Simulated assay, not measured.
Amino acid sequence: MSTPPIKKIVLWLLTIFLLYAILTSPDEAADMVGSAWDVLANGVGNIGQFFDSLLAG
């Protein structure tokens, strides 16, 4: 008896949820993606600033 591939199931559920969110409220979905992008960009910038400070000191 084999177990179902959990990773594949979770990926399909996430894809279905994202499509549902985009189709039902595209403006809110775009805001969420924009917010996630801002968080990611700030995180990368902060890591760069940390290493600049580390190398300068």
Rank of each mutant, 00 (worst) to 15 (best):
K7E: 15
P5H: 08
L13I: 03
L40S: 12
I47N: 02
W12C: 04
A56L: 12
I6Y: 04
A56F: 09
I16E: 06
S25E: 01
G34I: 10
D31H: 02
S2F: 03
M1A: 09
P4E: 11
P26L: 09
W12F: 08
A56T: 14
L40Q: 08
G34E: 13
D52Y: 06
P4Q: 07
D31E: 13
L23C: 04
W37E: 12
I6W: 03
N42D: 15
I9S: 02
L23S: 08
D27W: 03
A56S: 15
N46M: 13
V10A: 06
L19D: 05
K7M: 05
L55M: 11
P5Q: 09
L54T: 07
T24G: 00
D31W: 00
G43S: 14
Q49L: 14
M1Y: 03
G48I: 14
L14M: 06
D27N: 04
A30S: 06
V44F: 14
I16Y: 02
N42Q: 14
N46T: 11
P26M: 07
I6C: 02
V10W: 01
Y20G: 07
E28I: 09
Q49C: 02
V39I: 14
S35E: 15
A36L: 13
L18C: 12
F51S: 07
V39D: 13
N46D: 13
V33P: 02
S53N: 15
W37A: 15
V33I: 15
G48H: 05
M32K: 12
A41Y: 12
P26T: 08
V39Q: 08
S25R: 01
S35P: 00
D31R: 01
T3E: 10
G43L: 10
A30Q: 01
S25T: 01
F50C: 07
K8E: 15
L13V: 03
F17Q: 08
G57K: 13
E28P: 00
V44P: 02
P5G: 00
A30P: 00
S35C: 07
P26Y: 08
T24F: 04
G45V: 02
S35L: 12
G34N: 15
I9Q: 08
A21M: 10
Y20C: 09
G57W: 10
A36P: 01
A29V: 01
T24I: 04
P5K: 11
I6T: 09
